[in-house]
């Protein structure tokens, strides 16, 4: 199943990224100088035990949180120099999001939720692309429904469609299947992988579920704010094995 990167380009990268919470005595180092690259057109999973810094890494990469030091690039844009307005614009135009829960605005229909970033930007909708995305997520007959009329899986698929429809540089997915039953989770993950394969989309996903990570091209393992390992062409078994290793290391430490 090995797929060569269709492009050698880097969609996002971090250089010596640190994030420290609190001051002085109560300092907590969430990220201790992480350097990482996310190649364009690849599906990367970030794994690690709780408190390993995997969410913090994603938040910093996704312009949702500021770093203490180091650099973050989305495409060629370095984030630390940007003000709120520029960050907002960057998120809107270059980044797609899928969160674990509460992905949709309850007052808007599925269609309105999907086109939300484009509408906010005032960009016109590429009709063919939209239809293509909708067909892929299989939501054509659900577009006029409000979120509370959709199942959890459907909601997450709407969220994926939203992330995809604006053709962002990179999509960050934070535990996108964390709240779903396994069947719905499988649907969402398959869809994410398809969008990488078929649409050449770049996706970074944080998860603690080895079988979710198995859908990615490459898995990064974080522990104590450091990248401690990585694995290409993962399978659920291999990932689980590796995670067990961390757990025991964590327990020993």
């Amino acid at each position: 199943m090995t797929t060569e990167p269709s492009s050698p380009r880097t969609a996002a990268r971090a250089v010596d990224l640190t994030k420290i919470y609190g001051k002085d005595d109560t300092q907590v180092v969430a990220l201790g100088g992480v350097t990482v690259e996310f190649a364009a057109g690849r599906f990367t999973a970030i794994m690690g035990p709780s408190g390993s810094g995997k969410s913090t890494l994603m938040h910093c990469m996704a312009a949702l949180d500021s770093s203490t030091s180091g650099e973050v690039y989305i495409g060629d844009t370095e984030l630390s120099g940007l003000n709120d307005k520029e960050l907002t614009k960057l998120r809107r135009d270059k980044i797609g999001f899928v969160f674990q829960a509460f992905n949709l605005i309850p007052t808007l229909t599925a269609r309105e939720n999907i086109t939300l970033p484009l509408d906010i930007a005032g960009r016109s909708i590429d009709k063919d692309w939209f239809d293509n995305v909708i067909a892929t997520v299989g939501l054509a007959d659900r577009l006029s429904h409000k979120p509370n009329q959709l199942s959890g899986g459907q909601q997450q698929r709407v969220a994926c469609a939203r992330a995809l429809v604006s053709k962002p540089e990179i999509i960050f997915a934070d535990e996108p299947t964390g709240n779903l039953d396994s069947r719905s989770g499988t649907e969402v993950l398959s869809f994410l992988r398809r969008s990488v394969r078929e649409f050449d989309q770049t996706i970074v996903m944080v998860t603690h579920d080895p079988s979710a990570a198995a859908y990615s091209d490459r898995v990064l393992f974080l522990a104590d704010g450091q990248i401690v390992d990585e694995m290409t062409d993962p399978t659920a078994e291999k990932v689980l094995e590796r995670m067990k290793g961390f757990d025991s290391v964590g327990q020993q430490a």
Partner: peptide, 16 residues
């Protein structure tokens, strides 16, 4: 609050 956060995350500016 969460809705506001989501809107801001997907690119709604403060002014909007």
């Amino acid at each position: 609050t969460r809705e506001v956060g989501l809107l801001r995350a997907v690119g709604l500016s403060r002014r909007q």
